[in-house]
Design a protein around this nucleic acid. Sequence first.
DNA 1: AGGAGTTTGTGAACGCGAGAACAAACCGGC
DNA 2: GCCGGTTTGTTCTCGCGTTCACAAACTCCT
Lengths: 220, 220
Amino acid sequence: MARLPVYLRALTTLSDQGTGTCSSEELAAAAGVNSAKLRKDLSYLGSYGTRGVGYDVDYLRYQIAREIGVTQDWPVVIVGIGNLGQALANYSGFRSRGFRVVALLDADPARHEQVVAGIDVRPFDHLERIVHEHAVAIGVIATPALAAQDVADRMVACGITSILNFAPIVLTVPAQVDIRKVDLSIELQILAYHEQRKTQGASRAEVPGEVPATATEATA
Amino acid sequence: MARLPVYLRALTTLSDQGTGTCSSEELAAAAGVNSAKLRKDLSYLGSYGTRGVGYDVDYLRYQIAREIGVTQDWPVVIVGIGNLGQALANYSGFRSRGFRVVALLDADPARHEQVVAGIDVRPFDHLERIVHEHAVAIGVIATPALAAQDVADRMVACGITSILNFAPIVLTVPAQVDIRKVDLSIELQILAYHEQRKTQGASRAEVPGEVPATATEATA
DNA sequence: AGGAGTTTGTGAACGCGAGAACAAACCGGC
DNA sequence: GCCGGTTTGTTCTCGCGTTCACAAACTCCT
Ligand SMILES: NC(=O)c1ccc[n+]([C@@H]2O[C@H](COP(=O)([O-])OP(=O)(O)OC[C@H]3O[C@@H](n4cnc5c(N)ncnc54)[C@H](O)[C@@H]3O)[C@@H](O)[C@H]2O)c1
Ligand SMILES: NC(=O)c1ccc[n+]([C@@H]2O[C@H](COP(=O)([O-])OP(=O)(O)OC[C@H]3O[C@@H](n4cnc5c(N)ncnc54)[C@H](O)[C@@H]3O)[C@@H](O)[C@H]2O)c1
């Protein structure tokens, strides 16, 4: 289930705050979901709560981490060390969540001089060797859209079975390979869509330029 | 609908390839969705196709762009010009899709010396002035998680009604404000989850694409 | 002009996830 | 030991999105 990582994050925050146990209400609020949904999600993993009390934060956290698979270490390769690839390589949040960047690959020879986040940028042709050496199962694509399908094909050919794609293109891969895509332009466009609807409604209902001051308080 | 930007991207690709018209089958394949779903989505906008022929690529592209709202120009501010913020500022794909970065803001005075992507990094305190000056409706948060809620509150207070959040935290905002979040760690964790299941199932020989009928009801 | 072939638009069935509601279980006090 | 208060785990229902299937509509060829 795609919400487990959110619960895991919320539990980590609670644990850092020193909370020992929490109810489904509290955890649901921290994760931004309905408490019934949260309980149903957790019940899929087993009965890790105590009725009348709630959940033991650290215990539940470990159970979810184990279910997701982040108790073990996942080696990752990043291909395309441009603006985005460098930002990803420098991101500390991956390491702390069980992902270890074992290699940065780029097709541009000019990049091979660079060291990003303490890791040498290496030629893309080293992909096969590195994947085999470190038993890499997860690959990240941060190349331009035109190169992404080729990169994905190469990844699949040498045994990678999960791909995170940042290029704005629909990748075609065999059914046994998992693909997740992150497209920032699409996110912005969805916001623009709703924004347009808001302002259209405002032209009829409200005076332009005026922001309603009601209910600007966060709903807990 | 969240799939419209995907269709728009596919149509742009087709148009660049010189395709004048396309059927729902073709477009659906390019967008990676079912053709019936695509037709239903498009019929929601109006009858822009011709039976027996298909859709005029450029005409449909304009109609979808208008529906989404990317025919107009959307000013955007980015707050938190670290690794990720700089990558975003340098990304040319935003401009080409109707989004214009009007300001880069950061709380760290050391950043204010910098020029990123030809834009001065300015103090976060300038937020109100800039938002008012450029009529900014969309804000991007690329600060650490701890600062994100404060930044969001400030954004909301000065009239921003759509926020794209990269910080790994659940933001609380008034109901009229749209939030979209991008959490790369969560994406990787979802991949790890499926990866773990794959390798577990591999111990028993299985046909790819078939799912054991036991407790594996997590088809994303 | 008419028919054959093609493709859109949409009505209807299906499946699935979300949310409300409730019984079972647990804790603490008396 | 029992009882009130609390919280989980689960069942049931509802609504939505997806998909199939088909009639209407258009083009092209004869
Ligand atoms: N920068 C962003 O914030 C951002 C935002 C949204 C989407 N994206 C997408 O992410 C991708 C990368 O963006 P970017 O800004 O980092 O681009 P970039 O041009 O800065 O970097 C791309 C890198 O990929 C390398 N590359 C090109 N072809 C390759 C190949 N065949 N094999 C290996 N490496 C190859 C290039 O040498 C370059 O270093 C693009 O598809 C872009 O659309 C980026
Ligand atoms: N770098 C990545 O690839 C990546 C990946 C996933 C998630 N993220 C998330 O994106 C966010 C930014 O990541 P990053 O790697 O760019 O971090 P970073 O530390 O490089 O940059 C953060 C920037 O925010 C600024 N900042 C801090 N507090 C601020 C405030 N109150 N107002 C305005 N600016 C403030 C800092 O001065 C800094 O420049 C983090 O929340 C991180 O978890 C980053």
